[in-house]
Simulated assay, not measured.
Amino acid sequence: MKVTLQERALIAAGFSRESSPEGFGPLWRSYRVRNERCQGWFHSLSLEDEPWSVSIHDFVIRDDFVMNFDSPRYLTVTWFRSIAGEEFSPYRKLRPNSIWGQSIGGGPWRGVAHGGIPVQSVSIEVTPEFSARFLDLEYEGEFRNVEKAFVSLGRNDEFPEMKALLSGLWPQPGDEGRSKLFYGGKVLEAMSLIVERTRREAPGSRRAASPADCERIHDVVCYIDDHCAADLRVPDLAAMACMSPTKFKSTFKLVTGMTVIGYVQSRRVSQAEQLMRRDDLTIGQIAHAVGYACAGRFSAVFKREVGMLPSEFRKSVVARRCQGGEPNR
């Protein structure tokens, strides 16, 4: 993969080539940006003769940044050390210390990264052709749908093996000698982890919802988006979808990849992130505005979703707006 999608986008955003920091060997290309909108680094390991690449993001943007990419098709798995934002179609919350899988290409990908919070991540990207060859060699026709396996990542954040693998790819002082063979081996290991994890899933977890059920769930999701601060009860939402509560909960998770409660909480937190950019509201007032009577409960949910307490989030946003600064490696 000669030039990764992220690399092209970031170059267009003002990043320029610079010498790599300590720990990054000669295989890496590093880019840096220092302006009023963004501060930090992007590192890419993309070799001319290899169908895979490794990317590291380490920057902070001042304001929310809408991502809207249309690219050649490839598969990617990412570990986010730090992030705040959302992916659209389907809506999914971007969370710190989480694993994310995507199939990029064949149409635009859209999302938003929230300003003031460092974007720090490690990604492996592979071509579909490489994936097909890997599966033919390692599994002899037993497993075919690796694209679906990638896309399912992010619906369950508990993937400690992948977190350990990807976090270990972030170079530290003394790692300059890591070779092409080292990184290629880690790419194959990541592929194996994804395939084996998917094969261990119960067959019933991979069934598909009917088009009619998908449409009903979509309507309920739109309702939740517009009324996320309200007292949303599963029986009422199930009635809107013309389903029993049991079927509604299982179908909702099948379609969205999230539980009903998890989805409502993610929407409330997203709304709270926007409100905390205002100086005229206390955190308690914001908690109440997004549907939490107890500020303590709101703080616990916010920290799980964003990776920091509401007070820390507000302090970070204010600091980034008042003065520049780069995220620490």
Rank of each mutant, 00 (worst) to 15 (best):
V3Q: 15
T4D: 06
A12R: 05
R17N: 14
S19F: 11
L27Y: 03
R37F: 03
G40W: 06
H43V: 03
E48V: 14
H57F: 09
D58N: 13
V60W: 00
I61Y: 03
D64Y: 10
M67P: 11
F69A: 07
P72W: 02
A84W: 00
S89C: 06
R95D: 00
N97R: 12
I99P: 00
W100K: 00
S103Q: 06
I104P: 01
G107E: 00
R110T: 06
G111M: 05
G115W: 04
I117V: 14
P118H: 01
P118F: 00
S121Y: 02
S123G: 03
V126C: 04
T127Y: 02
S131I: 10
A132S: 15
F134M: 14
E138P: 08
Y139N: 10
F143M: 08
E147Y: 06
E147I: 14
V151G: 04
S152P: 04
N156P: 13
N156D: 15
E158Y: 12
F159D: 01
A164H: 08
L166C: 08
L166H: 01
S167V: 04
Q172D: 14
P173D: 04
R178D: 04
R178Q: 09
S179C: 04
Y183S: 02
G184P: 09
K186A: 11
M191G: 02
L193S: 00
R197Q: 14
R199E: 15
R199P: 11
E201Q: 13
P203T: 10
G204H: 14
S205I: 03
S205P: 05
R206T: 15
A208H: 10
A212E: 12
E215G: 02
E215L: 13
I217V: 15
D219S: 14
V220M: 12
V220C: 07
V220Q: 05
V221D: 05
C222W: 09
C228W: 07
C228K: 13
A230N: 09
R233K: 08
A238R: 02
A239M: 15
M243W: 08
P245Q: 07
S250C: 09
S250W: 05
V255K: 06
R267D: 01
A272N: 09
Q274K: 14
Q274S: 15
Q274A: 13
M276I: 08
M276H: 03
M276D: 04
D280L: 13
H288D: 10
H288C: 07
R297F: 10
R297A: 13
V301R: 00
P310L: 09
V317R: 00
R320T: 01
Q323A: 11
P327F: 06
R329C: 08
